Amino acid sequence: MMYGVREGWRRDGFESHEGTVGVLLADGSEPGPVFFDLGSGSTFHESTSWWHYDGEFRRPTAVSMRGRCACGWRGTTRYPIDWEKVREDDDPDAYDTTGPYGEWEAHLGEVAGRAVALPEDLVALLGQVRERLDRLWLEEDSVRGYAAMLRACGELEAIVAETGPEAARALAREQEESMPAVAEALGMTEKVARTRLLHYEYLGR
C-alpha cells in the first residue's frame, strides 16, 4: 500500500514530472499555498502539502485529494479526506494516498510512453557502467577506488562534452517550431527542456 510521503513522487529521468497529493475545497477549487508566520518579521513559510489544509488556524479546509504533477496535470478522481483519521493517527505519512499516487503513476507512464526510448544495448551499457562503478568501492582501497571513479567520471564527461552540444544544437534549430515535440521526446516540461538544451548547447564553452 502506498502511504502519504513528505517528499514528492519521482522517477529517474522524469524529474520535471514530480508528483504530489493535490487537494480540493468544497466548491471544487484548488487552493493556493498556505503561509505560516515564523515570527521573524516579514518571513513567511509557504506550503502546498495536503495535510496543512485542515482548517486549523484559519487555513482552508480540503474535502478531497487527487493526484497532481509539477507539469500541470491533475487527476480526475477525487478521494475524500477523513480529517478525524488524520488527527487520530497524528502522522500524515500514515494516511493512505494510494489513489492519488496510482493516478500520477499512470500519468507518468503515459509521459514515459511518449518519450523517445533509448536503444536496448545502450540501456544495458549504461547499467553496466553504473554497476561497475559501484563495485569499485569494494575492489579497491579508498584512495585507489576514489581515483578510479573520478577517472571514469572524466571519461564520461568527455563523451558528454563531445556528443551533448552537437545533439542540443540540432534540437535547438527545431525548438521554436516544435518545442512541444522536443519536450515530449525528452520526457520533460517545455521549460525544463529549454533549460536542458541551453545547458548542453553551451557545454564546455
Rank of each mutant, 00 (worst) to 15 (best):
M1C: 00
Y3I: 11
Y3H: 06
G4C: 11
G4Y: 05
E7V: 05
G8R: 13
W9V: 14
R10K: 09
R11L: 13
R11F: 11
D12N: 09
H17G: 05
V21E: 12
L24E: 15
L25C: 02
A26G: 07
D27G: 14
G28D: 04
G28M: 02
G32F: 05
P33C: 09
P33E: 13
V34R: 10
F36N: 02
D37H: 12
L38K: 05
G39K: 02
G39S: 03
S40V: 11
G41N: 05
S42V: 03
T43E: 10
S49V: 05
S49Q: 12
H52P: 07
Y53K: 05
D54Q: 06
G55R: 09
E56L: 15
F57A: 13
R58I: 06
R58P: 01
R58T: 13
T61Y: 10
V63R: 07
V63I: 15
S64F: 08
R66L: 15
G67M: 07
C69F: 07
A70W: 00
C71W: 12
C71N: 12
G72M: 05
G72P: 07
G72E: 03
W73Y: 14
G75Q: 09
Y79N: 07
Y79F: 15
W83Q: 07
W83I: 03
R87G: 08
E88T: 14
D90E: 13
D93A: 12
Y95S: 10
T97K: 07
T98Y: 00
G99Y: 06
E103Y: 03
H107F: 12
H107I: 07
L108F: 08
L108Q: 04
E110F: 00
V111L: 04
V116Y: 00
P119V: 12
E120T: 10
V123S: 14
V123R: 12
V123K: 13
A124N: 04
V129M: 14
R130C: 02
R130L: 11
E131S: 12
R135K: 13
L136H: 11
L138Y: 12
E139F: 06
E139M: 10
D141H: 02
V143L: 12
R144L: 09
G145V: 01
G145P: 02
Y146M: 15
A148C: 03
R151P: 03
R151I: 04
A152Y: 02
G154F: 01
E155P: 01
A158Y: 00
T163W: 08
G164K: 03
P165Y: 01
A167L: 09
A168P: 05
A170N: 03
A170I: 01
L171S: 03
R173Q: 13
S178A: 13
P180T: 02
A183T: 01
E184D: 06
A185W: 03
A185K: 02
L186R: 08
G187I: 03
M188L: 15
E190P: 03
E190N: 01
K191W: 04
A193Q: 04
R194Q: 13
R194F: 10
T195I: 06
T195C: 07
L197P: 11
L197G: 10
L198Q: 09
H199F: 09
Y200M: 11
Y202I: 11
L203G: 09
L203R: 15
